[in-house]
């Protein structure tokens, strides 16, 4: 089976939220090195609240929208609008779809990526979540284009997200709170890239499990 039902896939977001909540302390610690140390706290608050409110038996579209609403209207911070826009654009892209195949998934994450780019105006190499997200979306598309299966493409996406996340270590931040540090921002992971890789990883694993 190369597709999953949209209905019932709301639970994917519950899983994503659990990963974020579990990594609250770690994400805040990373953010503390060159940022203000709140990334995990804010992410966990938003994702945790969304998990409480969404229906895991409902559609992924609905769950994405719940998550986006919580982030946008209650969480604030950088992540409210950035991830808020990402998940809302992902929900819009998915829309009323009954099922989610590789093409729909690819379009969905591409829409999410464009949402973040639109609102944040950052580029690859700026040491942000885009350094995990962009190569991950590209890797997914490339894998499908190369004739791989949906699960294979998800593996490629996850791996690219992680490589992209790790690539931020050597970068100097160009946007966001850490951008004022210049060379001092080099040498540590970017918090947003780390949470983004976690989110994409959780997506990949849960969908793979549902596909098999």
């Amino acid at each position: 089976m190369q597709e999953i039902n949209n209905k019932g896939a709301g639970g994917i977001i519950s899983g994503v939220a659990a990963v974020i909540v579990d990594n609250k302390a770690y994400l805040s610690e990373i953010d503390g090195k060159i940022g203000d140390g709140d990334h995990g706290v804010n992410m966990a608050k938003g994702f945790g609240r969304a998990a409480d409110r969404l229906d895991p038996e409902g559609t992924l579209t609905e769950a994405l929208q719940v998550l986006s609403d919580v982030l946008m209207s209650e969480i604030g911070g950088s992540m409210g609008p950035l991830y808020g826009m990402m998940f809302s654009d992902m929900a819009d892209s998915l829309g009323e779809a009954e099922t989610i195949d590789a093409a729909k998934f690819g379009a969905m994450i591409r829409a999410g990526l464009e949402g973040v780019q639109d609102i944040g105006s950052a580029k690859v190499g700026d040491k942000t979540l885009l350094d995990a997200f962009t190569p991950a979306v590209d890797a997914f598309d490339a894998s499908i284009a190369a004739g791989n299966t949906f699960p294979e493409a998800l593996v490629a996406m996850k791996a690219a997200a992680e490589t992209g996340r790790d690539s931020t270590i050597d970068m100097v931040a160009k946007v966001g709170r850490s951008s004022r540090l210049g060379e001092r921002s080099r040498g540590v992971l970017d918090a947003g890239a780390t949470s983004c890789a976690m989110i994409l990883g959780a997506f990949a694993e849960d969908i793979t499990a549902r596909l098999s």
Binding site: V41, E74, I75, G76, G77, S78
Partner: peptide
């Protein structure tokens, strides 16, 4: 009034 060290949301 935002959360600790986090901007308030657009709604707020």
């Amino acid at each position: 009034v935002g959360n600790v060290f986090a901007s308030p949301s657009p709604e707020q």
